[in-house]
Design a protein around this nucleic acid. Sequence first.
DNA 1: TAGATTGTTAATCGATTAACAATC
DNA 2: TAGATTGTTAATCGATTAACAATC
Lengths: 216, 216
Amino acid sequence: MITNRNCIVRLSRYKKALYRFKAMGFVKFFSDTLGEAVGVAPSQVRKDFSLFGISGNRRGGYNLDQLIKKLQNILGKDQIQKVVVVGMGNIGKALISYRGFEKEGIQIVSVFDIDPAKFEKDQTVPVLPLNEFKSFVQDNNILIGIIAVPDIAAQQVLDMMSASGIRGVLNFAPIRLKSDKDTVISNVNFELELENLIYFVNAAEKQELINEDKIA
Amino acid sequence: MITNRNCIVRLSRYKKALYRFKAMGFVKFFSDTLGEAVGVAPSQVRKDFSLFGISGNRRGGYNLDQLIKKLQNILGKDQIQKVVVVGMGNIGKALISYRGFEKEGIQIVSVFDIDPAKFEKDQTVPVLPLNEFKSFVQDNNILIGIIAVPDIAAQQVLDMMSASGIRGVLNFAPIRLKSDKDTVISNVNFELELENLIYFVNAAEKQELINEDKIA
DNA sequence: TAGATTGTTAATCGATTAACAATC
DNA sequence: TAGATTGTTAATCGATTAACAATC
């Protein structure tokens, strides 16, 4: 099993690039065409493909339709992925109003919140009481959950998710969650991203000063 | 100059852990205490410190207050970091209502939008017309910007940011932006994160089936 | 001092890139 | 066929971990 996150991210990027190729009317492509489009070396493309047993045609490159299907299959795009969100705050709202998921086969089927004022049972994406979470998730066989609650509530929500059968969690709360090994957690942390960015901007500014000194 | 993103992420985590140590009344700490708290090897801690010229006391470990100051300094926390947001949608709202930035010295000073209905000049965090962006950013010496607009507008917003003196951009639009080399871009892509998560969940499920087979 | 911990060098590990024989 | 591109092996690169002499 491939455990390298970067490699999977590249597969997603390959897929996106291949959609563009298809829209441009292409029928086949080569490892260097795709590599250039995504910004990686052609040998990286071939290596990634070979890790997943994808093969092309020596001299003839790769068949576009075939590859798109293959990548969709690897990335779980061959069936609709149903996702639930806990927390109907601004993040929750941003997620359900985001139009990009649908075309990627990701479907947010419902949101759960603890605040009765937020319940909306009749919407396309209903907002339901938290105590209906477990039965809903089990009845609908949902594997993926998104935590969009304040950090103080996040661990409790994760525990509930694990206990309900959720196997993958995207966590927006800025804390480090403890989970059993059966649940995969992926964190999105705005604070950390910004702090990182600030470091690199400062570092670049300093570097520039040094370079100017050298020139002067 | 250190260019390893993971290393900087670790520094942020070290800082967070040291805050906790301080809250617990500690005065000094060792590389293995910190390593355990953050989940990295003690030699990794020492290596990271040495990359930034941070030294402790052989046998005596590291002074907590001193290290916190040092890390704050490296991460640009010794002064308030002013940030502007473009796009007053759900992401924009989520960002300005997020309480965690303040204690980290990150201050969102204003949001810009193209829709007059969203302008709110008198708020703590005002929402201003996009055409005031450049002068505002230049007058206030702002280096960091967040793109929270639909993908169709993102490249244009980035170009405006670069032209206004912004040097670091956190991009929430799900497209690959082209920038001049002077501007650092960091992408947050929910779709990509979810796709990734789905892959790893599926992979784990398959792995489990294999394991069950082996046991049976 | 004796013992524990740092700081740094060397070893390991994993991922990316280069090279090239196989082959369509 | 000749030439171009794959698929895979080997080389390189960079980051993490281990080891240990220096030293407080």
